[in-house]
Design a protein around this nucleic acid. Sequence first.
DNA 1: GTCTATACCACGATAGAC
DNA 2: GTCTATCGTGGTATAGAC
Lengths: 229, 229
Amino acid sequence: MPFKRLFEFLLTSMIAKELPVNSRTLGLTKERLIVVAGELFAERGFDAVSLRTITDKANANLAAVNYHFGSKQDLIVAVVDDIVRPVNERRLFLLDDIDYSRSRSIKEIVHAFIDPVFDACNSESESDNKYYKLISRCIASRDERVSSIIIKQFPEVLAKFVDAITKALPEISSNSAHLKVMFMAGALAHSLFHYESLLLISEGRFELNSTDVLKSELVSFLIRGINAS
Amino acid sequence: MPFKRLFEFLLTSMIAKELPVNSRTLGLTKERLIVVAGELFAERGFDAVSLRTITDKANANLAAVNYHFGSKQDLIVAVVDDIVRPVNERRLFLLDDIDYSRSRSIKEIVHAFIDPVFDACNSESESDNKYYKLISRCIASRDERVSSIIIKQFPEVLAKFVDAITKALPEISSNSAHLKVMFMAGALAHSLFHYESLLLISEGRFELNSTDVLKSELVSFLIRGINAS
DNA sequence: GTCTATACCACGATAGAC
DNA sequence: GTCTATCGTGGTATAGAC
């Protein structure tokens, strides 16, 4: 998006030197709020971030959240939906192209589930690892208010991945296929979220410089796991 | 614990008919608070439960939390620590008994990681599925304040399971072993936490009556996944 | 239509009386 | 040990400026 960057540069060099970083990206308050809220939510979690922190950083008034979104909950919905919806659409798109007559169909199913997440993370070069945390917060949220958003989109995704797995492995039960999808989602979200922490927890014994290694390890782990009877 | 139950019965039948259920279990305010807080945290999450809700249900004063624990954060620490510590101790105990010369050592490693969690859940027959949610909230918490508690205990657990995996599979790297433990933890926590939701999300196509099936599916999934090169 | 100022109630924390 | 009172902060609702 070169236009956006150019506009951002001009705006920065002209006037807004003292403004917070993220208030320069767009003039629209609503979009600034989504961007800023997303960054803060990723870093600290949904509850730990106050609306006043968000509106201050976004150079907006406190009441702007209520006007544009209705409530903090609805702001969370907007942020989460913006992130999860394209990922799930991409997942279903990739799933449609799978040829189940081939022996590698499980691998393709895993990639259809995993790739959209990693792609979404890598495309946001500016947000860096923050995006990882936000999207894994969404996938495996223990917050009822967030998971209720995910659940609206997830039944279709879950059902289609269960169908795909049972097509690839006709001998396993529907229950087993359901559980395999949950295991896959859990391994993905957990490793993605605690990826940074691993560097600290392992006390130097774990060191990776890119998520490519994480992804390839995850893929082989899931392929074997799903193939388990 | 027959004594406790007897005492509870006598107390109930004598005086405290109108008191909330969980304020009858023990006379000590501090213990009542831990029990009640654990139940509420499991159901709604740490942030969604206010101290006033906890103290009301535990028949205690609001300031009692601050007196006995110091703060809400410290109450969370007490609840989480009470749950996670025995599980991790049991994990390390089981890990010590593994004979790595045998081909089934990976299976034993998986059981050493998984079994203490399921055992802890099943032993709490009264709390039912609430305990599942609480313990999986702890394992895969995206809340920095909670994960900071886990991290204090987890480095030793992580290091020993990484050692165990590298003993069983000498050909894999330390990085790979670290990631495999994270995948295992994620699959466990995610499936445990969303176990109930699966019934709703799948719209009738997923139905399990006991966690035995979940556990056996999880074990075979993880064994195969960890064995993946 | 957008945005602001402001008031309101619930929450966590703390001090001090009993 | 326990309780009441109070403070600062948080989310929310509304009236009104532009």
